[in-house]
């Protein structure tokens, strides 16, 4: 009972944090809404121009997967470093009921709030072109949620090791490229020597599962099962890492 109450309290804190840092930012500075959409949409446009309709589908699914991870992991780094070093906000929250995981989820939910219009555009475009049944989205949503948690926890943990706000923005960009563009996110994994390379990044795992579900790409079912299991394991591991190894308290 106590444990349930504790979880409920943490959920409430996550929502209040997202209201404070996400919703209030969005309603007061709406230009932030489009920024998360620009990178994945640019890639989709270029892919469609040079690759045609088939690549539009791949691009849209990759764009959805990338927007989900960007709305957590990659952009969270910059904001987490900013709040910790520039505003000292993390230090002030140390003496509250927030813990590293609820703080990270609150921050990630804030980022997701900025990204909602981008996600909505991708979902509308996917639905307009692929006409997927609701059941497909029911299967895809937990995979995207796991990707979001994994990227967020990884991003927050990394952010706590940075000593300058500027490094945060740089690392966001580097991670976005290494995990969200280089692996098979916007292109099918079967173009690689082995499709199992898709397992290297949570973003490419999510994108590969989406391709399997929505484009019926002929991936081995073992790859999809392994992908989901890997994502689940990564979400758990990175959450534990954020809780235990992130620098919630300072070391110097």
């Amino acid at each position: 009972m106590m444990r349930l109450q504790g979880i409920w309290t943490q959920i409430k804190l996550v929502v209040v944090f997202a209201w404070l840092y996400g919703w209030l930012a969005v309603v007061r500075e709406p230009f932030w809404l489009v920024s998360s959409l620009l990178t994945p949409l640019s890639i989709v446009v270029i892919m469609t121009i040079f690759g045609g309709l088939h690549y539009l589908y791949l691009g849209l699914l990759g764009g959805l997967a990338m927007t989900v991870s960007a709305s957590g992991g990659f952009t969270i780094i910059g904001d987490a470093v900013y709040l910790r070093l520039e505003l000292k906000f993390q230090s002030m929250l140390l003496n509250t009921r927030l813990n590293p995981v609820s703080y990270t989820l609150g921050l990630a939910l804030s980022e997701l709030t900025y990204a909602l219009p981008g996600l909505a555009i991708f979902i509308v475009l996917i639905q307009a072109t692929l006409r997927e049944p609701a059941s497909t989205y029911l299967l895809a949503t937990p995979v995207l949620a796991l990707e979001w948690v994994t990227a967020s926890m990884l991003g927050f943990t990394l952010s706590t090791f940075l000593s300058d706000v500027r490094y945060g923005w740089s690392l966001s960009g580097i991670l976005g490229f290494l995990l969200g563009t280089l692996p098979p996110v916007f292109y099918p994994a079967y173009l690689l020597p082995t499709p199992y390379i898709a397992l290297v990044s949570p973003v490419s795992i999510a994108s590969t599962v989406l391709q399997y579900l929505m484009l019926k790409v002929n991936y081995p079912s073992m790859l999809i099962k392994l992908g989901v299991l890997t994502l689940l394991a990564e979400a758990l591991v990175f959450t534990v890492v954020a809780l235990r190894k992130s620098r919630w308290r300072s070391v110097k």
Partner: peptide, 18 residues
Amino acid sequence: IRHRIVSIPQEAKPIYFV
């Protein structure tokens, strides 16, 4: 003890859009 104490660090700033 964390929930029994509070602090304002030096050079702390509030979030600017709230």
